[in-house]
């Protein structure tokens, strides 16, 4: 979906256009409402929320819930706020995204430009790996991480995300490189370039767009993951999503809704930012995961 120029031949009258715009705006409100709720309620004192004012703007504006969510709120047993977990997520996401993207690019290059018997089957195997319910790998993975000495650590999570991210990054690069003219590779071969030289000098310089798509996709997926984080992390290596859930669902004490909302926005902010800055690529990534080619 490249966006922009809609060119439809269907003609609509004045009244129906009014109806169409109304419906579209109503749905804008529907999609924006939860975000609005999160933002306004993260900026007001708790008693304003309790008084049934969830939809109203704050009477007293306050940043206290944000401060609390970031650095003092009780997560599990410690009152550290979400800050250390935010850092965990960053430490987890950056290497996992980088490595899976690089491997995906190399795999895509091999699978399109150095084809061999059975390559489609290998690709199919990798691709199917993206769709399995991860419940199926939780038990052995927990053991394997233990054996590798990575249980309950951030590197362990990096490894898990890397392994299950390869399928998608390979998919992106394979589909992209399949459109890349093979004659260029042949020309470079005749010019004397080898496997890695061709990749580095011919393929990589043209891979910008797909690299962006792949990075965004992997970043969003890994940042937003909950299952692996909940299964394989210790208290001090938990990612943001798990910490947020702990914050929200802890049953002790007063429920600080405003702090919860502030925390939720913090967890959402990185991916939301990516979406706003590079929405075009984000959508392309989503689509490539479903309707291929």
């Amino acid at each position: 979906m490249a966006g922009g120029a809609s060119d439809t031949v269907v003609r609509t009258g004045r009244v129906s256009r009014f109806v169409i715009y109304t419906v579209l705006i109503v749905f804008c409100i529907y999609y924006l409402l939860p975000l609005y709720v999160m933002v306004v309620n993260s900026l007001k004192p708790l008693d304003e929320i309790r008084g049934g004012g969830m939809l109203s703007l704050p009477q007293t504006w306050t940043l206290a819930p944000w401060g609390s969510a970031w650095s003092t709120a009780q997560i599990g047993i410690e009152a550290t706020g979400l800050r250390p977990y935010f850092m965990n997520s960053i430490l987890m996401v950056v290497p996992a995204v980088a490595i899976s993207t690089i491997l995906g690019a190399l795999n895509g290059y091999v699978l399109t430009k150095w084809r061999f018997r059975g390559d489609t089957i290998i690709f199919g195997l990798m691709l199917f790996g993206c769709f399995i319910p991860f419940q199926m790998v939780l038990i052995p993975m927990a053991r394997m991480l233990g054996l590798m000495g990575l249980a309950g650590t951030v590197p362990g999570l990096i490894f898990v995300h890397l392994v299950y991210g390869i399928g998608f990054s390979t998919l992106y690069f394979r589909n992209y490189y399949a459109q890349f003219p093979t004659e260029l590779v042949r020309a470079a071969m005749i010019d004397g370039a080898g496997f890695f030289k061709i990749f580095q000098r011919i393929m990589l310089p043209s891979s910008g767009p797909i690299a962006v798509v792949c990075i965004i996709w992997q970043f969003t997926n890994i940042w937003n993951d909950f299952l692996f984080g909940a299964s394989f992390a210790d208290f001090d290596s938990q990612p943001m999503t798990v910490a947020l859930n702990n914050l929200v669902s802890s049953s002790t004490g007063v429920k600080e809704y405003n702090v919860h909302f502030a925390g939720a926005i913090m967890a959402a902010l990185p991916t939301l930012l990516v979406y706003i800055v590079a929405g075009r690529f984000f959508v392309r990534g989503l689509m490539a995961g479903s309707v291929k080619g």
Partner: peptide
């Protein structure tokens, strides 16, 4: 945009 959010959020 909701697609960019975590299900936890």
């Amino acid at each position: 945009y909701p697609m960019a959010l975590s299900f936890i959020v």
